[in-house]
Design a protein around this nucleic acid. Structure first.
Length: 498
RNA sequence: GCUCCCAUCGUCUAGCGGUCCAGGACGUUGCCCUCUCACGGCAAAAACCGGGGUUCGAGUCCCCGUGGGAGCGCCA
């Protein structure tokens, strides 16, 4: 009984069942992006599902670059794909294979199909095809090739260019047993004879994908469900090759916030942009695995848990909309729960992107501990921590007006004196000192902490004042208080000239 | 237009015929905590697309409708 049938009869086993009578070999899955744009979230999730399926069952994950469209494929796109996969740590076991390096093989198969009459040369001009299509559209018919060259007896037109078309069966039904969709039937009469080689002799997608998946021993084709309609054609080609079709699993699409297909215009940004904006690979992967798949009410999955728990058969059928807020929440979750040392390494990278020297401030792990509860991304954490690595540019205007006025002068002076003598320099000691100054002045802690915060950071937001002071260090703290005393509105009148 | 796919809170989802006046999470709102911002805690509002069946009983099965998505390239 196939998994699809199992699913239908409501008997999908929770745990993969090892059938003692048939030892299924470890699966081989692949991720096969085309380097014609960037690698976006949808592609990454497909890659993740393929990767998880392979890892889960001790199989092999293959990376293949589908670059047969030489017009649009670029090396830059290839690099973005590889870099993205590495950043996410979705390691591949084989490849990357490039289809452009396999042209000899495609040609070989092409010849064979031609010889066996399973494919034929088509001399129809693009113009004829266009008018044919236009006519069909006008008649509200499904545009398709009419098969003019299919049974052509007469000799081909002199010197005319030709493409090669696959001779699709005229009737019958093709069944696709999909791990996610169940059994889907397609009538052969709905399919036309697709082009498998262009006029310049280069092979096209539906042909190369079949040859490659077969040659590479792919057992499970996990891909976006925009390919479901291509599947019957591919199965027909496979049959012509007398090859066994792989198991298919068509995963639902990820839609943009407007419910439309993710595209350049709708938040389909490069995965590397998520890295640059300060997301952790752990967060992105966790977010993506929960899009279309779940394990009870569990929201957080470590990489190991994903591998252990993921089951391609449990993937939903409905498309889902990308939700940036939840990604943000997960990102902060990981900022808060990952080893500070791990987060610190990422933080260093982001500090550098802001032109800050990670070595010019307190230990990064301490910065992480102090900041992770008030930052949703690493980029935000880096920005919020800039004051620890270089002098603030100036003071936030409203903050200075409110907290660095004449009234705060005695407080800052007292803080400077007390902190100058402080020993040891610990958050606890700082806390006691600031509290002491407040008490002596008969003020609430906030009345003392806020002026100090503005003096030290230039703004009104930072970690708790004791931690902020502690991290900044004595020298910088004293210097910035002095600077604030000199820069305050009262500076001109009372003067710091003496 | 034709073919295929899909349909539970705004969003991601749990639910695999009775335990559902539908559960969790993000987001939203209110309260608490509080030196700022946050974090955290508590609480609340919020959904089974519609109509027919099947059944003692339907969110769960079937059909139709509606809505959404995909494909229909010498793109992948």
């Amino acid at each position: 009984m196939s998994a699809a049938q199992n699913r239908r009869s409501g008997q999908t086993p929770r745990e993969p069942r090892r059938d003692p009578m048939s030892f299924s070999p470890p699966p081989r899955t692949r991720f096969a992006p085309s380097p014609t744009g960037y690698l976006h979230i949808g592609g990454v999730r497909t890659a993740l599902f393929s990767w998880l399926h392979a890892r889960r069952h001790g199989g092999v994950f293959v990376l293949r670059i589908e670059d047969t469209d030489r017009e649009r494929s670029t090396e830059a796109s290839v690099n973005v794909i590889l870099e993205g996969m590495r950043w996410l740590d979705l390691g591949w076991d084989e490849g990357p294979y490039f289809q452009t390096r396999r042209f000899d093989r495609y040609r070989e198969i092409l010849e064979r199909l031609l010889e066996e009459g399973k494919a034929y040369r088509c001399y129809c001009s693009r113009e004829r095809l266009e008018t044919l299509r236009a006519g069909q559209m006008a008649r509200k018919e499904k545009p398709r090739y009419d098969g003019l060259c299919r049974d052509r007896r007469d000799p081909p037109p002199e010197g005319a260019a030709h493409v090669v078309r696959f001779r699709n069966p005229a009737d019958g039904v093709v069944m696709v047993d999909d791990l996610i969709r169940g059994r889907v039937a397609f009538q052969n009469r709905e399919l036309d004879d697709l082009i498998i080689a262009r006029a310049d002799g280069t092979p096209t997608y539906n042909f190369t994908v079949v040859v490659d998946d077969h040659d590479m021993g792919i057992t499970h084709v996990i891909r976006g469900d925009d390919h479901l309609n291509n599947t019957p054609r591919q199965i027909n080609i496979l049959r012509a090759l007398e090859a066994q079709p792989p198991v298919y699993a068509h995963v639902p699409m990820i839609l943009g916030p407007d419910g439309k297909r993710l595209s350049k215009r709708h938040g389909a940004v490069s995965v590397l942009q998520y890295r640059d904006e300060g997301y952790l690979p752990e967060a992105l992967l966790n977010y993506l695995v929960r899009l279309g798949w779940s394990h009870g009410d569990q929201e957080v999955f470590s990489r190991e848990e994903m591998i252990r728990l993921f089951d391609i058969r449990e993937v939903n059928k409905a498309a889902s909309i990308f939700n940036p807020d939840k990604l943000l929440w997960l990102n902060q979750h990981y900022l808060k729960t990952l080893e500070p040392a791990v987060v610190a390494r990422h933080l260093a990278w982001h500090l550098q992107r802001l032109d800050l020297d990670p070595a010019a401030g307190p230990p990064l792990e301490e910065v992480v501990l102090a900041q992770r509860e008030r930052a949703k991304t690493l980029q935000e954490m880096a920005r919020n921590s800039a004051f620890l690595f270089r002098e603030p540019e100036g003071y936030d205007e409203k903050a200075a007006d409110k907290h660095l006025g004449e009234a705060q002068r005695p407080i800052l002076t007292a803080l400077r004196a007390a902190l100058a003598e402080l020993d040891p320099w610990t958050p606890e000691a700082v806390h006691a000192t600031v509290g002491g100054v407040a008490e002596a002045a008969g003020l609430k802690l906030g009345k003392v902490a806020q002026p100090l915060r503005v003096a030290l950071t230039g703004g009104t937001v930072s970690p708790p004042i004791d931690v902020t002071v502690y991290l900044l260090g004595r020298d910088r703290t004293l210097a910035r208080i002095a600077r604030a005393l000199g820069a305050g509105p009262g500076a001109g009148r009372s003067g710091v000239t003496h």
